[in-house]
Simulated assay, not measured.
Amino acid sequence: MAGRGASEQPQRVTIAAAAWPSAAADEAAVKALDLVGDPSVEEVRLTSRPESASTARRLAVSVLRQWSLPQLSDTVELLVSELVGNAVRHTGARTFGIRMLHRRGWIRVEVRDPSRALPCLLPVRELDVSGRGLFLVDKLSDRWGVDLQPRGKTTWFELRVLDR
């Protein structure tokens, strides 16, 4: 009997968790935006550390929830990680900024840093363990690019969305 009860309990926990993630996730999303800033309103500056990638991902997913576009979360999380990773690893900057824009049919995510060094899209081989970031951005986004600024650059990607 103990074995049967042990196998039933995880199922009940899973079902219970599946019943409320929307409300809990909405609350967590609002909290993240309140604490750190809302990149859909203005650029949010983050410290250039590897840990900041998780904050940037959380902010991006929170904005997608506000825009009722949670179906884009996995792709946006991955691509934000890649752009933030490049900004943190390759620029030597103390901070970077993230901004998100939504216009009819598109979302755009921008990562701005003070370096004017352009990122390079490298050919990727099967056994490569690094250098895949922009390859992923190129394959998974509908458009991407780099805009040079007077002080630094903005690397961005866009995804097409179906408007209701």
Rank of each mutant, 00 (worst) to 15 (best):
124 V>F: 09
73 S>M: 02
117 A>P: 00
108 R>V: 06
155 T>I: 14
132 R>T: 09
19 A>F: 02
151 R>I: 05
10 P>Q: 07
35 L>D: 10
80 V>M: 08
159 L>K: 11
40 S>N: 09
19 A>P: 00
97 G>W: 09
45 R>A: 12
86 N>E: 06
124 V>W: 04
22 S>E: 15
69 L>N: 07
129 V>S: 07
6 A>W: 07
153 K>Y: 02
15 I>S: 13
83 L>I: 03
90 H>G: 06
159 L>V: 12
145 G>T: 05
158 E>I: 01
96 F>Q: 08
24 A>Q: 07
142 D>N: 13
93 A>R: 02
71 Q>A: 14
2 A>V: 13
139 K>R: 14
134 L>K: 00
107 I>M: 05
93 A>I: 04
128 D>E: 04
98 I>L: 13
98 I>W: 07
25 A>D: 15
24 A>L: 15
150 P>W: 05
128 D>I: 01
143 R>D: 10
44 V>N: 11
119 P>S: 11
152 G>R: 09
143 R>C: 01
69 L>G: 02
35 L>F: 03
117 A>S: 15
73 S>E: 12
135 F>C: 08
10 P>V: 10
56 A>K: 04
41 V>C: 03
81 S>P: 00
128 D>H: 06
36 V>I: 15
13 V>P: 01
149 Q>V: 06
17 A>P: 00
118 L>N: 07
58 R>Q: 13
12 R>N: 05
63 V>P: 01
105 G>M: 10
71 Q>M: 08
64 L>P: 07
45 R>C: 02
65 R>L: 12
70 P>C: 12
14 T>Q: 11
27 E>Y: 09
156 W>M: 06
58 R>E: 14
48 S>M: 07
104 R>P: 02
163 D>W: 06
14 T>S: 10
141 S>M: 01
76 V>P: 04
64 L>K: 05
37 G>A: 03
158 E>D: 12
92 G>W: 12
47 T>E: 14
88 V>M: 11
70 P>E: 12
23 A>P: 00
57 R>S: 15
107 I>K: 05
131 G>S: 06
83 L>C: 08
22 S>G: 10
86 N>T: 14
146 V>D: 01
3 G>W: 08
26 D>W: 02
2 A>M: 11
105 G>H: 11
145 G>L: 07
77 E>P: 00
13 V>R: 05
115 S>A: 08
160 R>H: 10
162 L>M: 12
136 L>C: 01
65 R>D: 04
68 S>R: 15
129 V>G: 05
5 G>T: 08
155 T>S: 08
145 G>C: 05
83 L>A: 03
107 I>R: 04
29 A>K: 06
33 L>T: 02
151 R>A: 13
151 R>W: 03
119 P>C: 09
151 R>T: 11
25 A>F: 03
116 R>E: 12
91 T>A: 07
75 T>N: 05
98 I>H: 02
3 G>T: 12
155 T>C: 11
38 D>M: 01
154 T>S: 13
52 S>Q: 06
57 R>W: 02
108 R>K: 13
47 T>W: 04
3 G>L: 14
123 P>H: 06
106 W>Y: 10
53 A>S: 10
23 A>R: 12
150 P>D: 15
93 A>C: 08
